[in-house]
């Protein structure tokens, strides 16, 4: 036979609706109930409380409630279109393409102009400069770190 603790779960469901229990659980609960006055009382009380709560009248929204909700949803519509990243992504696509193209083209315009003093400077590639510093055991640690992090060192003008 079920103990009171074991019966509690079935009792809870039986208080809601006894058909929630399968035949075996119902039979076990009935068997327990026939011997346990306390569980019979518990079942009655659980069912009574559930019944009262189920009769709580629903809260019908007022006209003001519905109007206020509609207004808030309308406001949200506007906010949503601003926050719609998909729409913004599409709109900004041409500008993004131009920026990408500009990024590719820009280095060729910043190369050494004819007549510049840089034209006559000894050409030292970035990797050579970095390598030179890395092999210079007398170089200060800050310069070594900077060379590793920033790549080519600024070169002199050759003057």
């Amino acid at each position: 036979m079920l103990s009171c603790e074991e019966a509690a779960r079935s009792l809870l469901y039986a208080a809601d609706d006894v058909t929630l229990l399968d035949a075996a659980a119902r039979a076990a609960l009935n068997d327990h109930m026939s011997h346990c006055a306390e569980c019979r009382r518990e079942l009655r009380d659980q069912a009574a409380v559930a019944t009262v709560l189920r009769t709580r009248p629903p809260d019908v929204p007022s006209l003001e409630f519905s109007a206020a909700l509609r207004a808030r949803l309308d406001d949200t519509n506007g906010w949503l279109s601003l926050a719609d990243w998909r729409r913004w992504t599409v709109r900004l696509l041409p500008a993004a393409c131009i920026l990408v193209l500009a990024a590719f083209v820009a280095p060729s315009h910043t190369s050494v102009r004819p007549g510049s003093a840089l034209r006559d400077a000894p050409v030292i590639s970035g990797s050579e400069a970095s390598e030179a510093i890395l092999w210079d055991f007398g170089a200060p640690p800050d310069a070594v770190v900077e060379a590793m992090l920033t790549g080519p060192q600024p070169q002199g003008t050759g003057q």
């Binding site: 709580r56 629903p58 809260d59 019908v60 929204p61 409630f65 519905s66 206020a68 909700l69 808030r72 949803l73 949200t76």
Partner: peptide, 27 residues
């Protein structure tokens, strides 16, 4: 809307804020 309003009022003990909260849920 009836369910959510009832839930808000039942859990907030019919506080004046319950209606506002119920609207905010839908927003």
């Amino acid at each position: 809307r009836v369910q959510i309003l009832s839930l808000a009022r039942a859990l907030l003990a019919n506080s004046l804020d319950a209606d506002d909260i119920a609207q905010e849920v839908f927003v």
